[in-house]
């Protein structure tokens, strides 16, 4: 028998688990092998050392156990007798985070809807006969500007603008904005053009989710433009009066300027 197998058998023999048929061979080997004899003695000594050094319980173990046992039983009895007692706490503890999460998700969804999916068309700032740009002075501008007058005496640009506002422009972008681009560039706000499109209202085509300052700036610009047109109209009226006076002076007949309309 080899020592490795003999030591395995020795371990089992120490526990009384060695089959009887292996006992005889083991004894023969151990009687002849000094190392295995030492091994067996060491196993026995190890067991004795473990037994001799058994840890001692603390002195107050019993009453500590009694205390913990009482607590465990009270807790268990409480759970059994009053099953509803702890439930509100549990529910409240679970309800608050759930409510917070649901509220956050709801707010996030509303914001996302506002930013990305909200209405892109707003109230029209300029329409056919829109109040902002349909002052009597502009309405008084003839559909055909003063062609009989020397063109050099008039500023063409306001007349063109007035014509645009009156609906004769072909969707020309306002203030030099590129065609199809608009004041706000690309993205959510897609463009701004003023005028009419076949009788339909022209509106600001952009999202409403921001850039309100852009609206205010546009209104300011339109008001300034309106004032500029009124000044031009006033100058034209003065020029008409001057020409009429000249005609009266030379005895010619009156000229229908439409100023009285």
């Amino acid at each position: 028998m080899h020592c490795t197998r003999a030591r395995d058998y020795l371990s089992r023999d120490l526990d009384g688990m060695l089959p009887p048929d292996a006992t005889v061979g083991l004894r023969e080997h151990v009687d002849a092998c000094l190392d295995c004899q030492t091994f067996r003695q060491d196993l026995v000594l190890g067991r004795r050392l473990l037994a001799a050094t058994e840890p001692k319980l603390p002195d107050n173990f019993d009453w500590k156990l009694q205390l913990r046992l009482n607590q465990a039983l009270q807790q268990r009895a409480g759970e059994t007798a009053y099953p509803w007692y702890e439930e509100p706490h549990v529910r409240r503890g679970n309800w608050l985070p759930a409510f917070g999460a649901a509220t956050s998700l709801g707010l996030a969804a509303v914001l996302a809807f506002a930013v990305f999916l909200g209405p892109r068309e707003r109230l029209p700032l300029v329409t056919d006969g829109a109040p902002a740009l349909s002052s009597p002075s502009i309405a008084a501008v003839p559909a055909s500007p003063v062609t009989v007058v020397d063109a050099g005496t008039l500023d063409e640009r306001p007349a063109d603008a007035a014509a645009n506002l009156a609906g004769r422009s072909d969707r020309r972008p306002l203030f030099g904005a590129p065609q199809g681009g608009g004041l706000y560039g690309g993205g959510v706000a897609r463009g701004l053009s003023v005028g009419t499109d076949g009788g339909a209202s022209r509106v600001f085509d952009r999202g409403w989710s921001g850039d309100r300052f852009e609206d205010a700036r546009t209104i300011r610009q339109l008001r300034a433009y309106n004032a500029q047109l009124q000044q031009t109209l006033h100058r034209q009226q003065l020029e008409l009066q001057r020409l009429k006076a000249q005609l009266d002076t030379i005895g010619a007949g009156g000229l229908d300027t439409g100023a009285t309309r």
Partner: peptide, 25 residues
């Protein structure tokens, strides 16, 4: 169990050779 015993024996081997320790045991 056998492996643990073999390892334990190696670990306590110096103690097992100590005569005074055995006497204390």
């Amino acid at each position: 169990i056998n492996r643990a015993r073999t390892r334990f024996r190696l670990l306590i081997k110096p103690m097992l050779k100590n005569e005074s320790l055995l006497a204390e045991l």
